[in-house]
């Protein structure tokens, strides 16, 4: 295998894992757009959704039926979390909100352990084995599938936000909650909707990554850090940025793991740390984000 083919192979694999980071980052960005909160529990909520999917499949439901059920459950769960956990601290200082989402993180993580135990579970691979070869580069069906799913999610969100009346309402709330409320929009319900959507998108990332990482309560901890890096790189208020950032982080991670011997496979988790630090120091608003102008 030539050097170039090898490089391309690594890039393709990076794009595959990048797709997972992109969808979790998308969930983070959605919530940040609507509520200005960075949800530290996003990964854990996705993990919980993945357990729901696992439970459904284990009880005999075919995967492609279990998926929509899981997504619906996640949507409802996300709305519930917003209403019960986040609404009471909406508008509170940042420190309070962060601590509440960290509390939610610990709680959800332990809850999954309580219900499903900490033993590792096998998650069914939804995509067929094998793949196709393109110019000597192997494209697994699973990699292609992951990228396709994220593209579909992205497209659906675009349609929802830009071409439906509910999307218009949601953008109004994200843009200026006070004005939206004055023009008769039930801001609270829209925020619940936003959290529901984010939980659904996050669930997609959990289901996609579970066959690779194996299902256990701490599965999403690492993924969350990569998703943070992706969202920071793309800009916390840009959905397109989240996807681009996710793919970039995925490729960067795979390439450094493969080609930089000092880093190797075990220190790859340093890559998101470096990306986050570099972006925040050089261009804090991210590639696609708008710089917030504050009046002191």
């Amino acid at each position: 295998m030539s050097v170039v083919t090898d490089l391309l192979q690594q890039v393709v694999e990076g794009l595959g894992s990048g797709a997972v980071y992109a969808s979790l980052a998308l969930a983070l960005v959605l919530i940040h757009r609507f509520t200005g909160i960075v949800n530290f529990a996003q990964g854990e909520l996705a993990m919980l959704s993945t357990y729901v999917a696992w439970q459904l499949v284990a009880s005999g439901m075919p995967f492609w039926l279990a998926l929509p059920v899981t997504l619906a459950v996640s949507f409802a769960g996300g709305m519930l979390v917003e209403r019960l956990v986040i609404r009471p601290v909406q508008g509170a200082p940042e420190l309070t909100v962060v601590i509440v989402t960290v509390g939610l993180f610990i709680f959800v993580n332990a809850l999954a352990g309580l219900v499903w135990s900490f033993t590792v579970k096998d998650f069914p691979q939804p995509f067929p084995d094998g793949g196709l070869y393109l110019a000597g580069v192997r494209l697994d069906w699973s990699t292609l599938g992951m990228i396709a799913v994220v593209a579909v999610v992205m497209g659906l969100l675009y349609l929802l936000f830009q071409h439906t009346s509910i999307g218009l309402v949601m953008r109004a709330v994200a843009g200026n909650p006070a004005s939206a409320r004055l023009s008769g929009i039930r801001v609270g319900r829209v925020l619940m909707l936003g959290w529901g959507l984010a939980a659904t998108v996050g669930a997609v990332s959990g289901v996609l990554v579970a066959p690779v990482l194996f299902l256990e309560p701490n599965m999403m901890g690492g993924v969350l850090v990569y998703a943070f890096a992706a969202a920071t790189l793309g800009g916390f208020d840009s959905p397109v940025g989240a996807v681009v950032g996710g793919l970039f982080v995925g490729v960067a991670e795979t390439l450094t793991g493969a080609y930089v011997d000092v880093i190797g496979a075990d220190l790859k988790v340093g890559v998101p740390l470096v990306i986050i630090l570099a972006v925040l120091l050089v261009r804090p608003q991210g590639l696609f984000g708008r710089a917030a102008v504050e009046r002191a």
Partner: peptide, 9 residues
Amino acid sequence: GVVFGLLII
């Protein structure tokens, strides 16, 4: 974890 999480919130 369950106790911690609930108590923090």
